[in-house]
Design a protein around this nucleic acid. Structure first.
Length: 216
DNA sequence: TGGTAAGTCTGACGGAACTC
DNA sequence: GAGTTCCGTCAGACTTACCA
């Protein structure tokens, strides 16, 4: 059971929220002191400790302006305007089935990641899958990367797509169609392209972004 | 009414970055 | 390099609210 915030603590949370909206970086303790008309920085620090303990903020002591707002003063989760939650639906690799959202719901997602909103361009249907394999390495998509896709039933030549072949396997490749034949072109000279009749291929989504973690 | 915990305050310190 | 400014943190004391 979370304790109710004091008036001062509510004011601090609201000030941090407003400061983030105005400046797009967190305030210092002295910014908060001035903004909330608090007489001492230690009062700010004291209340920030409580807010951290109660889960309203997170502080990074090793850096200045290391305050991160987790909830607003009413207890609602705080999420920056420029960040959206994107569901991650399993992995994608040639020969392995990929669960694609549609009839399913977001609750089926393996995980949810926060991504910059420019990646989704406001499309709420955007989803992500994790890449297995190196067949797209020359397109800067490596094993372990997260590819962000928007659902699509068709694609233009050159698009990077998640395509279902023969209704049972899904692969990530560049899409080319000519004379009723689809070529799914890898971005790796070591991997052969897949050439199949157009009626055997169904585009599941177009890649709109790639996210890579540098952690091992 | 006294004890206790929470909240608030003043004042000061040390580290980092910046300026001259 | 010395001085200044900014920043986060700490010590200790005071005030307030609550409870037995």
């Amino acid at each position: 059971m979370k304790k109710k915030l004091s008036t001062k603590q509510e004011a601090i949370v609201e000030f941090i929220k407003g400061f983030l909206e105005d400046h797009h970086f967190p305030p210092t303790v002295r910014d908060i002191q001035a903004g909330c008309e608090i007489s001492s920085t230690s009062v700010v620090d004291y209340n920030l400790r409580i807010l951290q303990r109660e889960g309203y903020i997170r502080r990074r002591s090793e850096v200045s302006r290391g305050i991160e707002l987790l909830k607003d003063s009413s207890g609602r989760e705080a999420r920056p305007d420029n960040v959206v939650a994107v569901p991650v639906f399993g992995s994608i690799a040639a020969g392995e089935p990929l669960h694609i959202p549609g009839a399913a719901t977001r609750s089926d997602a393996d995980e949810v990641v926060d991504l910059p909103s420019f990646l989704t361009r406001g499309n709420p249907e955007v989803f992500a899958v994790r890449v297995k394999g190196e067949s797209m390495i020359d397109a800067l998509v490596a094993d372990g990367d997260l590819v962000v896709l928007e659902p699509a039933a068709d694609a233009r030549n050159g698009d990077m797509v998640a395509a279902e072949i023969n209704g049972d396997e899904v692969t990530l490749k560049h899409f080319f169609m000519q004379n009723g034949t689809v070529t799914l072109q890898p971005a790796n000279a070591q991997v052969d392209p897949i050439v199949v009749p157009a009626d055997k291929v169904q585009v599941k989504g177009k890649v709109v972004g790639v996210v890579r973690s540098m952690y091992n």
